[in-house]
């Protein structure tokens, strides 16, 4: 038992390596927040493209659906490895794109952002879609019959209602995204997993990884509670009747 605690929960060891692990977690946080925001926007763009009306835009809808299917279907880790190993070899790209070092962040950071945004954009597009499709068809008809274009109707009528309904599932995806940033350790980004696992292999003590895991919990647990709260509020609204929307 003592051995078990020493291996995984050595408090003194954690204190000694706290700053290192926290530095790694800071990288993780930046990666998660930036990718999360980009995926939120990219997913909304994809969902909107998917809903474009008319025969002429069929190719756009088809390509969007193909994109979403493909990137939901392939493992994020493979995509990270494909991008990080492939893009720097593309000689026709300018060096600032092949080996991006923007804002003092290494190329592995940016490759990670790209891969996560591509994948989670596809996931979030599906979440937005479920929200858009849950808005009754009469809303679009009412907006169009008042002379609004499809785009105006989406912006002013459909999306404000749809997004409100999907805030909780989007947050769920963000929690998953935050955990998946650990995969970027495979291309040598010094985020929390890589930092902690290096400490583990040097010292044969796993407590730094445990510490990293605890840092994740500090972030993900409140988010999970928030999701629960939002869902129960949404259900409360549902049982009271029509949705009540104070401000959005």
């Amino acid at each position: 038992m003592e051995e078990f605690i020493k291996q995984f929960f050595d408090v003194g060891f954690m204190v000694d390596h706290f700053d290192e692990v926290l530095d790694g977690f800071w990288i993780t946080t930046q990666l998660a927040v930036l990718s999360g925001l980009l995926a939120l926007v990219w997913g909304l763009i994809l969902a909107t493209l998917r809903q474009l009306p008319g025969k002429a835009l069929l190719p756009v809808r088809f390509l969007t659906i193909a994109y979403i299917d493909v990137f939901r279907g392939i493992p994020l880790l493979m995509l990270i490895l494909l991008i990080a190993g492939g893009v720097p070899a593309l000689e026709f790209l300018p060096e600032s794109l092949r080996l991006p070092q923007w804002f003092g962040k290494p190329d592995s950071f940016w490759f990670g952002v790209l891969a996560i945004t591509i994948t989670y954009g596809a996931y979030m597009a599906e979440v937005y879609r479920s929200g858009i499709e849950s808005v009754p068809g009469g809303q679009m008809e009412a907006a169009r019959s008042l002379g609004m274009s499809h785009g105006q109707a989406m912006r002013n009528v459909i999306l404000p209602q749809a997004i409100r309904k999907v805030i909780a599932p989007l947050l769920n995806d963000f929690i998953a995204l935050t955990k998946d940033t650990t995969l970027v350790s495979f291309i040598a980004l010094n985020e929390v997993t890589l930092v902690a696992s290096d400490i583990q292999s040097e010292t044969f003590n796993s407590s730094a990884l445990t510490l990293g895991a605890i840092m994740f919990l500090v972030v993900t647990l409140p988010l999970a509670r928030l999701v629960d709260k939002l869902i129960s509020r949404e259900q409360g609204r549902f049982t009271r009747g029509a949705p009540r929307v104070e401000a959005l």
Binding site: G138, S145, Q161, P243, L248
Partner: peptide, 16 residues
């Protein structure tokens, strides 16, 4: 659409 107004059975007011 600029000349024809319509009112629906289900009202279809914008709830937000």
């Amino acid at each position: 659409r600029q000349r024809v107004g319509i009112v629906f059975q289900q009202f279809n007011l914008f709830p937000h």
